[in-house]
């Protein structure tokens, strides 16, 4: 843009104007005035208080983790050891299974939250009398502390004497040792995670479903379609933005999830429910700070590799529809 000073003058106050940098030095006094007004009204130093805290406590550690992950580190001194930490991470069986568990946990929880969240939302936007109360009941666990939920369910899921096993026994079903059996431990924790988090997914879906114009449903009525057709051909495709949101949120939460697993199983039995976040904690406790930081870098890369392309894809799909 080659600008005469007149054009600059014509700009209204507060008009989007990110020039300034890389613009010819010739500026009219008036234009400088406008920019000054903007600098006075929306000063950049408003970023400073937040920026300093965020920079020091979040950005700096994130950046330096990429150095310390390659070191043997005591917090006081560090020795560069190249890729050794990562080699250890990917060769020790316990750590490798942690990587797999993280993925399983994230996929299972987000899949179930999508399915159950959508079903509950359909139910709770229907003609049910107690739906307001039910929405609150399903949402409340989201606000309860994860530790409290974890302890409560590890008691409910106790083998033989626990409430869940007793009820199932009355129905003639022999319950597994939910948290004590390596085969079921991780999935049991994942189910509790879904119990705690599905309320948020449900509310996101409810917002999405209520935003669907009624005409579409009426059109199905006119064509003589039933409830299934409405669900299959209207609700599911038109609540796609809600689905994207739920998937992204639960993947981000599921990949870094720690507190529920830690309170319910501590990563056990053995290493059967260890995830990257619990390995980071264990290696930290054992004093392997470099290895722990390498775990953090692995988690960072995993989250970025999964979430970033997915959100790009979702955004492009949303623009299309």
């Amino acid at each position: 843009m080659v600008m005469s000073s007149r054009a600059d003058e014509a700009r209204p106050v507060g008009h989007r104007d990110d020039a300034g940098a890389g613009r010819p030095a010739r500026k009219s006094p008036r234009a400088t005035g406008v920019r000054n007004v903007r600098a006075h009204t929306y000063p950049y130093w408003f970023y400073a208080p937040a920026g300093i805290v965020y920079g020091l406590i979040f950005l700096v550690p994130t950046v330096i983790s990429f150095y310390f992950a390659f070191t043997r580190w005591t917090l006081f001194e560090s020795e560069f050891i190249g890729l050794d930490n990562f080699r250890q991470f990917f060769s020790e069986q316990a750590l490798v299974s942690g990587l797999r568990n993280t993925l399983v946990y994230a996929v299972v929880t987000s899949g179930l939250k999508v399915v159950l969240g959508m079903l509950l939302a359909v139910l709770l936007t229907g003609p049910i009398r107690s739906r307001g109360l039910m929405r609150s009941v399903i949402f409340f666990p989201v606000l309860v502390s994860t530790v409290a939920v974890g302890i409560t369910f590890s008691v409910l899921l106790q083998p033989d004497v626990g409430v869940v096993s007793t009820v199932l026994a009355k129905l003639g079903i022999t319950a597994p040792d939910w948290l004590g059996d390596p085969a079921t431990a991780l999935l049991s924790v994942a189910l509790v995670d879904v119990w705690k988090g599905v309320g948020l997914a449900t509310l996101i879906y409810i917002a999405g479903i209520l935003a669907i114009p009624r005409d579409y449903y009426e059109a199905v009525d006119v064509d003589g379609g039933g409830a299934w057709t409405k669900f299959r051909n209207v609700t599911v495709p038109l609540s796609r933005p809600a689905t994207f949101t739920v998937i992204l949120l639960s993947l981000i939460g599921g990949l870094r999830s720690f507190d529920l697993i830690w309170t319910m199983t501590g990563g056990g039995p053995g290493f059967s429910s260890d995830v990257i976040a619990s390995i980071i904690y264990k290696t930290y406790q054992a004093g392997f700070f470099g290895l722990s930081t390498a775990g953090n870098v692995v988690l960072f890369i995993l989250v970025t590799l999964i979430v970033y392309p997915l959100s790009r894809y979702f955004n492009s799909r949303e623009v299309e529809s």
Partner: peptide, 19 residues
């Protein structure tokens, strides 16, 4: 930076070091 803050898991031990 805001989006990164939502997605990136915080690096634990480096944060302890900074503190």
């Amino acid at each position: 930076l805001v989006l990164s803050g939502l997605i990136i898991p915080p690096a634990v031990v480096p944060t302890i070091w900074v503190l």
